[in-house]
Structures are given as structure tokens and as C-alpha cells.
């Protein structure tokens, strides 16, 4: 009888110690997880429109690669690239410069009139549609806007062209 009492006293103490340890771990561990998961919890605040430059800098019909910085409130800015197509009738297209397959930087092939990605042969038309290779969908395109002769793009790539013929 005395022996079984001793065992239950031992297991009682172990449980209390375990509970204290678990509480300490939770008290310190949850903030640690939250801290590391911050990119998913606090979304970066960026301006709605970013200026890429005077419209005259974009030759009609020939896609031009533009580098720009996305200012982020309270953070270091991100460097990004976009391919801009000036359609000549006041309309502009701007595509994210990463291939939609695996993010490689593609190039414009003037002769073939195609955006070609060197990594796995992704090919896109000037309209941003997939015309060949493995990309799952068309180029990510930014919303565009012209104001006072300056071309602006929306803050994140939105929508994409569907696979073309």
C-alpha cells in the first residue's frame, strides 16, 4: 500500500513537472513560430501604382525590359523586372519578367517574335500567351495605366493570358 502510494506521488510530481515544462515551451515556442511565420501574417504594404518611366521610352511594337524597385513600407525595396509592350494605340502590356514555369528570366527573340525561356524552352507570344514548352499558363501581366505621359503598373501581377493556339 505504501509502495503504490510512493509510485503515484512520483507520477504526480512528474506530471506537474511535465505540465510546467510544456507551459514554458509553449510560452516561448508560440512567439518563435509566429516570428518565423511573419511573412504569412504581415503582408508587405506596397503602393498601388509604380511608375516605370515616360511612355516615349517604350518603342512601339518592340518589347522592352524595364527594371524597377517596389518600395515596401518600412522595409528594403524589392528589385523587379517587367517586359513592357507598347501596342502603339495607347495600350500597354507589362509582363512579369519571370517565366511562369520555374521563374527563369526569359528573353525576347526579335526574329522569332517570341519570348523564349532558356531553362526549359518555354515560349510566349507578344500577347503573353504560352505558345510552346512546359509553362502551365501565360505570362503574369500587370495592370497598366498612363498618367501625364508616364507609364504606371499595378502592384502585383494579376491574371494571365491563357494558352494560345
Amino acid at each position: 500500500m505504501a509502495n503504490s502510494d510512493a509510485v503515484s506521488r512520483r507520477s504526480f510530481i512528474y506530471r506537474i513537472i511535465g505540465a510546467i515544462g510544456g507551459f514554458i515551451a509553449m510560452l516561448l515556442g508560440l512567439p518563435v513560430i509566429g516570428y518565423l511565420f511573419s511573412p504569412l501574417i504581415r503582408r508587405p504594404v506596397t503602393p498601388d501604382w509604380i511608375g516605370l518611366g515616360p511612355v516615349g521610352e517604350f518603342p512601339v511594337g518592340k518589347p522592352t525590359l524595364v527594371g524597377f524597385e517596389i518600395p515596401v513600407q518600412g522595409e528594403a525595396p524589392y528589385s523587379q523586372g517587367a517586359w513592357v509592350v507598347n501596342w502603339g494605340d495607347g495600350r500597354f502590356s507589362a509582363y512579369d519578367s519571370n517565366c511562369t514555369h520555374l521563374g527563369c528570366p526569359f528573353n525576347w527573340n526579335e526574329n522569332a517574335e517570341l519570348f523564349l525561356c532558356p531553362c526549359h524552352g518555354g515560349a510566349f507570344s507578344k500577347e503573353g500567351q504560352v505558345v510552346g514548352g512546359p509553362p502551365p499558363h501565360g505570362l503574369e501581366s500587370y495592370a497598366t495605366r498612363v498618367e501625364n505621359g508616364t507609364l504606371y503598373i499595378g502592384k502585383t501581377p494579376s491574371g494571365h493570358a491563357e494558352r494560345g493556339a
Partner: peptide, 9 residues
């Protein structure tokens, strides 16, 4: 350079 063309990683 995030603004590159045709770089193969």
C-alpha cells in the same frame, strides 16, 4: 541582377 535576360541558373 533581378533584371536579367536569358540567364540559366
Amino acid at each position: 541582377d533581378p533584371v536579367s535576360t536569358g540567364f540559366v541558373p
